[in-house]
Simulated assay, not measured.
Amino acid sequence: MSGATGTQRAAGPRIRPHVGLRAGVDIGATKTLVVLRDDADGLLAEAETATPARRGGDAIMDTAAELVRGVLAEVGANPAALTGVGVGAAGVISAGGMVTAAGDSFSGWVGTKIDLELSRRLDRVPVRSENDVTAFLRAELGELGADRPRHALAVAVGTGVGGALLVDGRLLRGGGAGAGEIGHIGDFGDEPCSCGRRGHLEAYAGGRALTRRYAAATSRQWSAERVASSALGGDPVAMAVFERAGRCLGMAIGQATGLLGIDLAILGGGVVRSWQLLERPLLEALRQHPLVSGRSVAIRLSELGERAVALGAVALVSPAPD
C-alpha cells in the first residue's frame, strides 16, 4: 500500500493487467484486510492496515479504497480492471449496503452507505456488502465444497463476537438483517456489552472484554493476545478470564443451536487462535446443553483463518454468488 500506514503482502508473482479481477474487503473493528483474486480464483495479492474505527465512515471507506488500489498496483492493474468488490463489514448491514447498527468500537459508522461510498472512490466499480460473519460463513462453506452442510452456526470471536446462520441450505438474514447476532444474547452476569446493555456473550468472550476483565483484576492494560500468552504460562487470573469466556461461548452456542436444531458450529476470529484455552470449558458447557435430539453439537475451527471474511466477500461479486 502506498504510504506507511499498513502492510502489503504479495501472494504470487506480478501479472499483467487483465479483466476479471475481484477484490474482497474485510472491515473489522481492529483491522481492514483486502484480497485480490482473478477469474481462476487465484489469490494474487493482499494488504491490511488498522481500521480507523473512531474516525467515522468516510475515513473507513478511504482506507478500504486505498488498500484496494494498493493491491491493484501490486499486480499492475487499476480500478477499471475490477469486475466487482465485495465487502464483509462489522455491524448490521442492510440489503442495500448501509450500516444500520454497530458496537461502540466504532464512531460514525452507522449510516455509512458502504456500496455507494466505496464504489464512488473506485471509479464506480460495482460493490456489494454484507455482515462480516455472514461473509466468514460463506467462505467456510465454500471451503467444505461437496461436504457443505444444510445447517450451521458461525461464531467469530475477535474484538467483539458475531454470528451468522445457515438454515435449510440458505444464509439467514432475518427481518431487517441482524440474524445470528449471538454476541448480544444471554445473561451471563453484569459486565457491560458494547451495545450498551449488560451480561451479553460479547461482554465475556470478545477480545475487548478479555482485556477489560483482566485489567480490572490486575490493573495491567494488556492485549487479548498477551493475556492469552500469560494464561498459557500459568497466570491464574488470565486462565480464569479465558475459562469464563469459553464457558459463556459454549452456553450461547448451545442455546442458539438448540433453538434451530443445528448440530454444527464453525468458529473463527482472533480470540479463537487461543483454542487450547477455550476448548475444555466450551465443550463442557455444550455437554450440559445437549440438543433435544440427543446429538451433540460438532465444533469446527475455521479452515481459512484471517482471510476468511475477505474471501467470503469476494464470493459476493463472483459470477454466481449464492
Rank of each mutant, 00 (worst) to 15 (best):
A4T: 13
A4L: 13
T5I: 12
R9V: 09
A11L: 15
R22V: 03
D26E: 13
V35T: 10
V35M: 06
V35L: 04
L36D: 05
L36E: 03
D38S: 02
D38R: 01
A40K: 10
G42T: 12
T49E: 10
P52Y: 09
A59L: 12
I60P: 06
D62G: 10
G70P: 02
V75T: 14
A80F: 05
T83P: 01
G84K: 02
V87A: 01
G88S: 11
I93E: 07
S94A: 13
A101I: 08
V110T: 14
T112I: 12
T112K: 11
I114D: 02
D115L: 12
E117H: 12
R121W: 03
L122V: 12
V125F: 07
V127E: 08
N131D: 09
E140D: 10
G142P: 02
R148Q: 12
R150M: 11
H151A: 13
L166W: 09
L171V: 11
R173K: 15
R173V: 10
R173F: 11
G183E: 02
I185D: 00
G189H: 07
E202S: 10
A203H: 05
G206F: 01
G207M: 06
G207S: 08
R208F: 08
T211P: 04
A217Q: 15
W222A: 14
E225M: 11
P236Y: 07
V237N: 07
F242R: 03
E243K: 13
L249S: 01
L249H: 00
L249F: 02
G250T: 00
G254N: 00
G258L: 08
L259C: 05
I266G: 04
G269P: 10
G269W: 04
V272G: 01
L277Q: 06
L282F: 00
A285D: 00
L286S: 00
S302Q: 04
E306V: 14
R307T: 09
G312K: 09
